[in-house]
Design a protein around this nucleic acid. Structure first.
Lengths: 340, 340
DNA sequence: CTGAAAGCGCTTACAG
DNA sequence: CTGAAAGCGCTTACAG
C-alpha cells in the first residue's frame, strides 16, 4: 500500500472551492454556507482527508499539546492522576506530551528546554519543583505552568494541592482522640511542599493539644527508606503506639516492616495512618486509615486554571488548596464517636 | 515580562550569516564551518533562541513524537512500562503523546484519527487491540504501529510480548511439582492475547501431564470481578488447592478474598500464582509467587522495532516474544529441588 | 459567504 | 562551506 498525503488543496479542488473554504469548514467557529460545507465534507470523506495538526499549530500558534513533567510513577497516586488528567484534557481537545524528570541527574533544565521546543500550550509539573530561572523561561515564552500536588512561593505560578496542612491537623486530632500516647511522624522528601504542610499541620495540632512528637524520621517517599526509618523508629526501649506516615506509598512499607519483620500487630500494637487514599489502601491486606486526596477535583482545578491562562494570557495565576480533607477510617484504633 | 519569539532569521542577522547557516548549525548531521558555528551559537545564546520543533516537523515530516495508546493505568505493570518507555524514548529525542482509550465507549476510531492528526512518527498501542481498518489507516498514513504486551495476527504489524505460552506452561509444571491436586485457573479478559496464551500454555502442560483443570473462572483483569470469581471458585464442596491467576493485579484481590473473606491461608490452604511480577508482588503482605515479565526488555524491543520502521519505512514488522519466562518463587508450596 | 495572497518558522535541494 | 529561493500544509486578514 502506498502512502498518500491528502492536503486541503486536494480537497478544495475536488469540491470545486478554495483552500480557504476547506479550512473554514474544518475550523469550528468559522463561517461557511451549508452548501459549501456539504461539498467539502464529501470531498474530504472521499479522499480520506484530515487536517494536519502540525501545520495548524504553526500558523495558529496553538499546538493543543500540554507538556507533563513527572518524576515517579511508582507512587500509585500519580498514574491515577495522569489517567484522569489525560482523559479530561482529551475531552477538551488537548493531549499530554510526556517528559520524565529524572531526579537523579536533575536534568530539569534540558527537559524544560525540550518541552518549550515542542511549542506546548501549557505545562503541568507534577511532583517536581522548578527554579525561578526555569519559570522565567516559560513566562517569557508565554507558556503557563501549573504545579500539581506541590506548591511554591511565586505569585505568577499556579499551583493546585489539597489542603495538606488541614489534613495533617486532622490526623493529629484523630490519633489524639484515639488515646495514643507516643505518636511518631515519618516524613517524606523534605523538599516537597506536601510533606512540609502535612508535617506542619500535624505538629501544630499536637502542640495545640499540649503534646509533643514522640519520634521523627525521614523516609523520602521511598519504600526502602521507609523500611529503614521504621526500624529506627521502633528500635528504642519504648516504642511508638502510632505513626503518621507522609504518604500511603511509604505507609505500606511501614506496615509490612512492622508486621512481618518486627512481629507487631497493626492496629493492635501500633496505629498507622497514611496520606492519599490510593486504591491499595483499601485492599484488605492493608486496610489503611488515610487522608483522601481528591484527585478528581485536583485534576479539574488544574485543567481549569491552565486553560484559563492559555485562553487568556492576562489571566492571573492562582494557588488552589482544595479544602475539607477527609480521613478514611480503616484499621487503626478508632476513637469513639469520631466522625470523618 | 513581554513575550518574545526569536526566530532563526533573527539569529542569522545577528550572526551575520544566512538563515540556512543557522539551520545547519542546529541540525546534527549538517555541514558548517567551525567559525560559522561559533558565531551562530553565540548569537543564539544571546537571543535565547531555540529551534521551533513544530516548524521543523512540518518541513522535515518528522515530528519526533510517538503516540501512546493506553487503557488502564491501575494495573501497576503499565505505569512501570510507561515510565521506562518514556525515558528511553526521551534519550533518543522522541516524546510520548498520550491517548487514553476509554474502553467503555470503545472510541478507538476517533482516538486513532486524532493521533494521526498530530503527525506522530509512530504509535505504541499498549494493552489494546486494533481493528484491521484502523491498522490500514495507519499504514496508508505511513505510521508504523507496535503492539505492546499484546499480539495480533497481522503480518504487517509489530508486536512485542513476553513468551506467555511458555510462562503458562511453567506455572503448570511448578504447581504440579508442588504436588497440587485441584488446580484452578482464573482468566483475565478473554480478548487479550496475553490471557489466551497464558491459559493455553497452562492447559497444554496440564494435559501433557495427564491432568485436567479442576475449575475455571473469568476475572477480566479487574479487581472486583476477580473477587467474585474467587468466591465462585471456592464455593463448592471441594476446594482448589492451587489457583493460577492471569495477572498479579487480580492475584492480589484473590489473596485478599481468600484470606480475609474466607479465612483461608495462602499458601498453607491454597497456593496462588500470578503473572507480571509488579512491585507489589514482592511486598511482604502478598509475597506472591509470579512469573516475571521482563518490562525492560519488552520496552527495549518495542523501541527498537518502532524506530527501525520509522527510520526505514521498508523495514518489515516483527513479532517478538521474549523468551525464558522466570518464575519468582515466593509464598506458595515450593516443590523440592525446583529451580527458577 | 468566498477567494487570492501572504505568512507561520523552519529545511533542503540547487548553485556557487 | 554558504546563500537565495522554494516550499512544508495550513489559517487569516483583506477585498469582494
Amino acid at each position: 500500500m502506498s502512502i498518500v498525503k491528502v492536503t486541503s488543496l486536494d480537497v478544495a479542488r475536488r469540491a470545486g472551492v478554495s483552500q480557504s473554504a476547506v479550512s473554514r469548514v474544518f475550523t469550528p467557529g468559522a463561517s461557511a454556507s451549508a452548501k459549501t460545507a456539504e461539498k467539502v465534507r464529501k470531498a474530504a470523506e472521499d479522499l480520506g482527508y484530515r487536517p494536519n495538526n502540525i501545520a495548524r499549530a504553526m500558523v495558529s500558534g496553538k499546538s493543543r499539546m500540554i507538556g507533563l513533567v513527572v518524576a515517579y510513577l511508582n507512587n500509585q497516586f500519580y498514574p491515577e492522576a495522569l489517567e484522569k488528567l489525560s482523559s479530561a484534557l482529551q475531552d477538551q481537545g488537548y493531549h499530554l506530551l510526556i517528559f520524565m524528570a529524572n531526579t537523579e541527574t536533575d536534568n530539569m533544565d534540558e527537559v524544560l528546554d525540550e518541552i518549550l521546543d515542542y511549542q506546548v500550550d501549557g505545562i503541568v509539573a507534577a511532583s517536581v519543583s522548578m527554579s525561578s530561572v526555569l519559570l522565567g523561561r516559560c513566562r517569557s515564552a508565554g507558556v503557563p505552568v501549573v504545579l500539581f500536588n506541590r506548591s511554591q512561593d511565586d505569585d505568577d505560578l499556579s499551583a493546585v494541592t489539597s489542603d495538606n496542612y488541614a489534613g495533617g491537623r486532622k490526623v493529629a486530632q484523630f490519633l489524639l482522640a484515639g488515646g495514643h500516647e507516643r505518636i511518631a511522624y515519618l516524613a517524606g522528601w523534605e523538599g516537597a511542599s506536601t510533606q512540609r504542610d502535612r508535617e506542619l499541620g500535624f505538629n501544630d495540632a499536637l502542640e495545640g493539644a499540649g503534646r509533643t512528637l514522640f519520634a521523627h524520621e525521614v523516609g523520602n517517599f521511598h519504600t526502602e527508606s521507609a523500611c529503614e526509618a521504621t526500624r529506627r523508629l521502633f528500635s528504642g526501649p519504648e516504642r511508638p503506639d502510632a505513626v503518621f506516615v507522609a504518604n500511603d506509598h511509604m505507609a505500606f512499607a511501614v506496615m509490612d516492616t512492622l508486621r512481618f519483620e518486627m512481629g507487631l500487630s497493626v492496629p493492635d500494637d501500633v496505629s498507622v495512618v497514611g496520606y492519599d487514599d490510593v486504591p491499595t489502601a483499601g485492599w484488605p491486606a492493608y486496610n489503611l486509615t488515610t487522608v483522601r486526596q481528591p484527585a478528581n477535583q485536583m485534576v479539574n482545578e488544574t485543567i481549569k486554571t491552565l486553560l484559563a491562562q492559555i485562553e487568556d494570557p492576562a489571566a492571573s495565576a492562582r494557588r488552589i488548596a482544595i479544602d475539607g480533607p477527609l480521613i478514611v477510617r480503616r484499621s487503626a484504633r478508632i476513637p469513639k464517636g469520631w466522625k470523618t
